[in-house]
Every structure is written in C-alpha cells, then in structure tokens.
Amino acid sequence: MERPQGEIEILGLIDWHQFSVPVIALESVVGRPFGEPGAKAKVAICNALDNSQQHPAIGIVLESVPRVLVVEDGRRLPAAQEKSEFALSSRHQGDLVWIPDMEKIGHSVNQQLALD
C-alpha cells in the first residue's frame, strides 16, 4: 500500500530510558520497500530534532552497524545522487550513502502519532 506524501511508516514503539520511542525503517524514509528485519537487526536511537518533544527520539531499524563517515576538513561530498522528502544521497568512495534529515523525520513521525 502506498503511503501518503510526507508520511513515514512507523513500525511500532519501544520503551527506552523512560521515553516511548517510535521505530521506523530507513527504507521507508528513502521510499524503498522494507521487509521483515533479520535476526541480527538492531535499532539505532537518534535525536528527532523536532521541537514538539512528544517523541524526542526516533529508532531506526538497521541490518548492520552503521559506520562513521569521515569527510576531510573543507571537503564536500558530491551533489545528491538521489533525493527523497526525508533524505539525500551522495557517493563516497564508490558507495551510495544516505543522509537522513532527522528534523523532517521527527516532525513527520510526531505529526502522525499526534493524529492517532
């Protein structure tokens, strides 16, 4: 089923440090299909950067541990290769990297949960 523009699929809520944290899949952020998480899936907790404070953190399902991307001081990543409403992508050393906009993601998720 196609989600309306501006909505991210919320997989559920988990309790983390006395907060109710909505969990999403990065695939839904970039408009790709998301299957069942594997046995080794993890959830990365990220600040939502949304001022509503209803849910100040967002959990993102990951199939592997993300690695830090070090960009040399003063150097920029190439222009976006692909775009979604909630993230941009670029190429770094031949790999496609997605950079999520946590403020937009947090705003969308908090709006959706406020309507429920």
Rank of each mutant, 00 (worst) to 15 (best):
M1P: 10
M1G: 15
E2G: 10
R3W: 13
G6N: 13
I8R: 03
W16S: 09
Q18C: 07
Q18Y: 11
F19V: 00
V21K: 04
V21N: 03
P22I: 02
A25R: 13
L26G: 08
S28M: 09
V29Q: 01
V30C: 11
R32A: 11
G35D: 06
E36I: 09
E36C: 08
P37L: 03
G38S: 12
A39W: 01
A39V: 06
K42N: 09
K42S: 14
V43Q: 06
V43G: 02
I45Y: 07
C46R: 08
N47M: 09
N47H: 11
N47F: 11
D50H: 12
S52H: 11
A57E: 07
A57P: 00
I58D: 00
G59S: 05
V61R: 02
V61A: 01
E63K: 15
E63Q: 13
S64W: 05
S64F: 06
L69S: 08
V70W: 07
V71S: 14
V71Y: 12
E72I: 05
D73W: 08
D73M: 13
R75C: 14
R75E: 14
R76N: 15
R76Y: 12
R76P: 00
L77E: 02
L77A: 09
P78V: 11
P78L: 12
A80M: 08
Q81P: 01
E82R: 14
E82Y: 13
K83V: 10
G94Y: 10
G94A: 11
L96Y: 05
V97H: 10
W98D: 01
W98H: 06
W98K: 05
W98A: 02
W98L: 04
I99F: 10
P100E: 07
P100D: 06
M102T: 06
E103F: 04
I105A: 04
G106E: 00
G106S: 06
G106N: 04
S108K: 05
V109C: 07
V109T: 07
N110A: 15
N110E: 12
Q111H: 14
Q112L: 13
D116T: 11
D116I: 15
